[in-house]
């Protein structure tokens, strides 16, 4: 029993974070917002970082890493508000696709995969995808509140439980990353902005708001890691753990967003302050890949419905109850 990351996992996380901090700052988001959302140079950089190869098997030219690593990277994508379709295409699709040539093309960054699922009324980045997995999209563009998301109306989608769990896990990880970034943005603003002759971050009202966000994020993270571990190891309980992680990450990110705009005051209500990119991403991901109602229902079946044993000795059990 060991609930700690390996040194290699920490290196991976720190490396991706440093790369994105250096290449994918808020000025990039503003540029993409003006220019239309996607940039082959950014995509190429992510490919060169190895992110598209991360969980593709080594036999197909990938790094053969697992879902803990995928989730660690997805937190960083959320923190940087990366909008290239790397999350769906590279951190989810390789676990759904069996075709070796397609896997090799994903790893090489040559194939972008979009995901269709009936739980979502859209397919993200369908227009640039070489493959829409699980269904198809129409050419009709749907406008998202998040200016950096590119959504297309779904034409056909088949329910695929594996896709849902994997994509919900990666969405939860991005929500945690977005929440952490919004906490940082609000904290930095509170240190800088002065009123009544002092930084507003010195006032307890502000401190306590931000501290509550830190608490919510702290206790969303371990649910995320357990979900990644259970899904990676094919546990029957993986879906329940994913739902726990998605709910906790959603609630923490929404709390971070509402707190961050409040701490920014009227500035937070403007398009000039960068906060809105992460806030809108949090709204979008909150509803994507199963909204609160969807994931609550799954927990309800498990916990109240009795489909899963609960109690102090049950945290790391793997099976559901049968019969």
């Amino acid at each position: 029993m060991n609930f700690a990351f390996t040194d290699e996992q920490i290196e991976l996380r720190d490396g991706v974070r440093a790369y994105l901090e250096g290449t994918h700052g808020a000025e990039v988001l503003r540029r993409l917002d003006t220019e239309g959302g996607r940039d082959p140079v950014i995509w190429r950089g992510l490919v060169e970082m190895g992110l598209t190869a991360l969980i593709v098997p080594e036999a197909q030219g990938g790094l053969g890493l697992g879902l803990i690593e995928a989730a660690l990277v997805a937190v960083e994508l959320g923190r940087a508000d990366v909008s290239e379709p790397v999350a769906d295409s590279a951190l989810v699709a390789p676990r759904l696709i069996a075709d070796e040539a397609q896997l090799a093309a994903i790893a090489a960054g040559e194939l972008k995969v979009a995901l269709a699922h009936p739980v979502n009324p859209w397919v993200a980045d369908a227009d640039q995808a070489g493959l829409v997995f699980g269904g198809s999209a129409t050419g009709e563009r749907l406008e998202s509140a998040d200016p950096l998301r590119r959504m297309f109306a779904v034409a056909r989608a088949e329910a695929d439980a594996r896709m849902l769990d994997h994509a919900a896990l990666i969405a939860a990880a991005q929500l945690v990353g977005a929440g952490e970034r919004m906490l940082t943005l609000a904290t930095d603003y509170a240190k800088d902005r002065e009123q009544f002759g002092q930084a507003i971050g010195g006032f307890q009202a502000i401190k306590h708001h931000l501290a509550s966000v830190a608490v919510a994020l702290e206790f969303a993270r371990p649910a995320l890691w357990r979900a990644a571990y259970a899904l990676e190891n094919g546990h029957e309980r993986a879906g329940v753990h994913v739902s726990h992680a998605k709910l906790a990450a959603t609630d923490a990110a929404v709390q971070a967003a509402e707190t961050a705009i409040q701490v920014h005051g009227a500035m937070g209500y403007t398009y000039e302050v960068d906060l809105h990119y992460w806030m809108k991403r949090a709204w979008a991901l909150a509803g994507a890949w199963g909204d609160r109602a969807f994931h609550l229902r799954r927990l309800d079946d498990a916990v109240i419905g009795g489909a899963m044993a609960i109690g102090p000795d049950q945290s790391f059990e793997t099976g559901m109850t049968h019969g």
């Binding site: 904290t187 240190k191 971050g201 010195g202 502000i206 401190k207 306590h208």
Partner: peptide
């Protein structure tokens, strides 16, 4: 409330109480 002050000041690095 004290715990939230500690989080704000020591984990988030906000100004200490009364430092203003």
């Amino acid at each position: 409330e004290i715990q939230r002050n500690i989080i704000a000041e020591r984990l988030l690095g906000l100004p200490r109480l009364g430092a203003g």
